[in-house]
């Protein structure tokens, strides 16, 4: 009886899960070295240019509706003479156990074979549930169909969809670049990809090299080595979301760094 039950459960599991769920091709990972981050927001600008993000204007920015997929969160601590400013770049964490994927009724957001948490704009019906379930608030909703003025529409990146109103969007780890690299690698007859072959826009533009991107499944990749650092932590890890973005803690000359 127990054996039969196990058999049925095994069948159901194989039936319900596509093959890549068990063994994904990659686990794209980003390491953010906060010791190197200078908070220059070059990554934010690069992301705007690369991913056709809408520029919403002053008023909607004030209503917390800016469309930035990556943001530098800035926290000011203390009163005037003793002010400490802390900042941290936050983008979609591409959680291994993403709360948003459970919530989407139409599979508009799902986990793909690269270990990415992807968003299919065409499939999105705009129930907002993924944004509610996301603990990092990285999902951005298209409140209007923002249009670019005449000469500026020439700047659109042809590799990335321009989203219309009523659709949720978020950081894709520059999925179009990953696709292009995979295609190129396939044409050249080699798999998997070499380390450093895929570079998202934010990583490419980071002047201090604080952002590093690579495959977390590959033990020899740069990110895998950096992730082993003593300073590593993941954002809101206690929520058990298994994020793919690994932060390396900033070391400063005070008590907070000495404890660890």
């Amino acid at each position: 009886m127990a054996g039969l039950f196990v058999k049925i459960m095994k069948f159901l599991r194989t039936y319900r899960r596509p093959g890549y769920f068990e063994k994904p091709d990659h686990r794209w990972t980003m390491v953010v070295d906060l010791d190197r981050c200078i908070g220059c927001t070059a990554c934010v600008t690069a992301c705007y240019a690369e991913n056709n993000l809408s520029v919403v204007g002053k008023e909607d920015c004030g209503n917390s509706r800016n469309m930035s997929w990556i943001r530098i969160e800035k926290y000011v601590e203390g009163e005037f003479p003793d002010v400490k400013i802390k900042f941290i770049p936050i983008m979609c964490q591409h959680c291994g156990k993403a709360p948003c994927e459970v919530a989407c009724p139409t599979y508009a957001t799902y986990h793909n074979q690269d270990g990415l948490n992807v968003q299919v704009y065409n499939r999105c019906v705009g129930t907002f549930t993924c944004a509610v379930y996301c603990p990092y608030d990285v999902r951005r909703f298209n409140w209007f169909s923002w249009k670019r003025e005449k000469p500026l529409d020439e700047q659109y990146n042809p590799d990335v969809t321009v989203r219309e109103k009523g659709v949720m969007e978020k950081c894709t780890f520059c999925n179009h670049r990953i696709r292009a690299a995979k295609d190129r690698a396939k044409d050249e007859g080699r798999r998997p990809l070499r380390d450093g072959e895929v570079v998202p826009a934010c990583v490419q533009s980071c002047p201090s090299g604080a952002l590093v991107f690579g495959d977390g499944l590959d033990p020899d990749s740069k990110v895998s080595k950096m992730a082993k650092s003593d300073r590593n932590y993941r954002l809101l890890e206690e929520l058990n979301t298994d994020p793919s973005v690994i932060y390396l803690k900033r070391v400063v000359n005070d008590e907070s760094s000495r404890q660890a």
Binding site: N66, W143, K165
Partner: peptide, 15 residues
Amino acid sequence: ITGQGLTGLNTPSVW
């Protein structure tokens, strides 16, 4: 026609 932006919703308060 215009979009959900007419509401008072914003990024964390999407409901």
